[in-house]
Design a protein around this nucleic acid. Sequence first.
RNA 1: GGGCCGUUGGCUCAACUGGUAGAGCAACGGACUCUUAAUCCGUAGGUUGCAGGUUCGAGUCCUGCACGGCCCA
Length: 503
Amino acid sequence: MKEGKVEEVLIKQRREKMKKLLEKGVKLYPNDFKPTHTVGDVKSQFGDKGEEELASLNKNFCLAGRIVALRRFGRAAFIHFQDATGKLQAYFKQDVLGKERYEIFKLLDIGDIIGLCGELFCTKTGELTLLVKDFKLLTKSLRPLPEKYHGLKDIELRYRQRYLDLIVNPESRERFLKRTKIIQFVRQFLIDRDFLEVETPMMQVIPGGALARPFDTYHHALGIKLFLRIAPELYLKRLLVGGFDRVFEINRNFRNEGIDLDHNPEFTMLEFYQAYATYEDLMDLTEKLFSELARTVLGTTKVTYQGQEIDFSPPFKKLDFRKSLIEVGGLSEQMLVNAQATVDYAKKLGAKLRPGEGVGKALAKLFEKLVEPRLIQPTFVVGYPVEVSPLARRNDRNPDITDRFELFIAGKEVANGFSELNDPDDQRRRFLQQMEMRKGGDEEAHLIDEDYITALEYGMPPAAGEGIGIDRLVMIFTDAPSIRDVILFPHLRPEKDSEAKQE
RNA sequence: GGGCCGUUGGCUCAACUGGUAGAGCAACGGACUCUUAAUCCGUAGGUUGCAGGUUCGAGUCCUGCACGGCCCA
């Protein structure tokens, strides 16, 4: 971070205060203060109590938090301090504290973390306030916080110094609290349905389970190249082979791709697998999950996302993949029956199709461009081409498509699920097709995983599985325009200064 | 990777067609014992992202670079 001269002066001033505090025998970073209450406790218990009621309490409260506002006048002052649960006002008076303690109080700054003990009362204006009888500096802050009224607006600083964003922008803090609530709800929803939470490798020898470019790394002791996982799918399905009939994992995936409003190189994914279920069962389950999630976390099934109302009450719309290209994408029937015409049109719209790549890939590209952004209300799209679904079960009536769905909300792909392919011979053929594409230059084509095929040869029960992009889900539920708004520390290019420091 | 836009005290923002870089908050000094964007008086704080160029003169125009945002690939 660049450090201007002015900032250095501000820091120096605070260091001077530290010196004075030390001279008065004040410890700067003690760790022996135990709060008896949080701001949330106090507010929920006494927030609506009247003056007399508070006065008759005659009880001592100890709280701790960061000073975020300071209004001094002579020998008294009001501050606001905040802890993890909220903000509370406190009143410092020389009468109460004595001259010596009040002199120490005067050396405190906005940003300092303090412990406060005292009684609750109600101010003239009706605000619940702690009358401070004793206080203790817990951590001295050396740097000035961003402005109290406007907060921190600079988007780059908000990402790079998220802790500042969290201190001064309540809506950011709320958003991340909501993220946690969402994940907790999803986890409990699955646990309640007898799903077993498991952890599978983040580092894999063969990165599989999705069509994406991986990050690679090296394990020195083993002397092998490893890849950060792009999906946990193939490991979770090995667990189905092992007899865990319902499993799930909520964890990070890593994909070596560009960054935009909907993509971060590491993102959080839920994947779950259920033996003896079909993709249709999972669509039902997904509707239930999303609508209950909305009701629990937001208190309503109608959500406003970027100005558009989204209704999570079931049932969700279902749309056939091919039909969606005509009805939503505006393509003609004639074009879709003519493979060459389809491919040509996809190319015309800017899709890069390599020589080996067929009509399935072209359709997927057309869908991505013409249909996906228009699916605002929760919509299941079903009937994806086999070519782009190498791990999904083939449809019994139409062998060109799979028993697969994707769920779109607000123009974003939020979930992807299918009946699992458990025929080891078909799986091998699919892998081989993918290898052909890879030879044709498709770096995202799936690699052959012989060990996984071996597992299938032992027999995997018929099953269905699904992945849900947690970050996008949180975006929609918190009205966040960018995935970076729902990831605490999104990836940015390092600043030049810090790069120099590393060397 | 390409296009467009942005970068001004710690923070939030001003500065017309090129003509002495300003304000609020925060800070510092002072007054003030129920304030809440406290108030009042005073003070200080800037290599306008970086490097070049044009010009008598550049925050402003031009070129390159860095970082960020949006759009496209």
